[in-house]
Nucleic acid binder design. Structure first.
Lengths: 155, 155
DNA sequence: ATGGTCAATGGTCAAAGATAGTCAAACTAT
DNA sequence: ATAGTTTGACTATCTTTGACCATTGACCAT
């Protein structure tokens, strides 16, 4: 297991049930004996908006980083993702983050998320790398739209 | 006996009764004094879906390969479909039939089938018509494989 | 009060490192 | 000859590091 994964886990543990957690970048970096910028790397790759996180920070003396779990109305989340993935395409990692987030929100079951992941994996999408993201975006969009439909029906 | 056979045997032994085994490609290659890519060769020729195996992996620091056993004997229906959709591609109607059949068999829930249908609809697959069936086949294959995997987990 | 300086933060980005994947050429066994 | 194996060059992806930049607040001089 690499250090970034360990730091991720540590932050998740520290976050626990709380809405946010506050820390000092250099301190954390020293604790895990990594370059300070690796903290940014972990935040950028693991605690993304797709997964429902955001950060705030301040430089200078007494500087800090706050990691925040954002909660949002589920339909809004869905529509946001639909709008976003609509045009630009999306890579597999980001797509998984979205699916995990939606699973955490109870929109998908674990199994459904797994199936969708399989459907949009690089392996499934036999296309040149460039085209893949576009295609994946389109597929995901259709799936989310379908979900939005049945979700609305359901209530 | 050639080295590939030996590596195959080693992996089978290591796998034992477990559902999956995790290893590092370079380490394994070094251990058997072969080129790293030979590990891929062994996986590609011996641990195929048709034989009841699949793999997952990650590159970069802390990278790994996971060899996963999927159900070998039980799900003949599924494996048949997998073989069929593997090569030729499949049109949307046929795909839906398969999904409905599998839903009737209790492999998929209604909802799961809906999601998959959305994912392989003509709308989702932005590609030339000719390419669509091929692509749909590939996606469906991945989904079915995934199902075999999680199916095994459950029992 | 006002502005200047400096140390203590955090941010960015590109390079280096660490893996795994692909593919075709060379080799080997049948 | 043909099919299967082995190798290596090249590629793709993920992680880790470090050099350089930006911001903030404390302290100081005026």
């Amino acid at each position: 297991m690499n250090v970034s994964d360990i730091i991720e886990k540590f932050l998740l543990d520290t976050l626990g049930d709380e809405l946010s957690v506050n820390f000092n970048r250099n301190e954390l970096a020293t604790y895990f004996a990594v370059a300070p910028s690796q903290i940014n790397y972990v935040l950028a790759t693991r605690f993304t908006p797709e997964r429902g996180y955001m950060t705030e920070s301040r430089r200078g003396g007494g500087g800090y980083i706050t990691l925040i779990r954002v909660s949002q109305n589920v339909d809004d989340v869905l529509t946001n993702y639909i709008d976003q993935t609509l045009s630009d395409g999306i890579d597999y990692g980001k797509a998984c983050q979205i699916l995990e987030r939606l699973t955490a929100d109870g929109i998908f079951t674990e199994n459904e998320a797994q199936l969708i992941k399989a459907a949009i994996s690089d392996k499934a999408l036999l296309a040149p790398t460039v085209a893949k993201n576009k295609l994946r975006g389109s597929i995901l969009k259709c799936v989310l739209l379908e979900t939005l439909k049945t979700h609305d029906d359901g209530e």
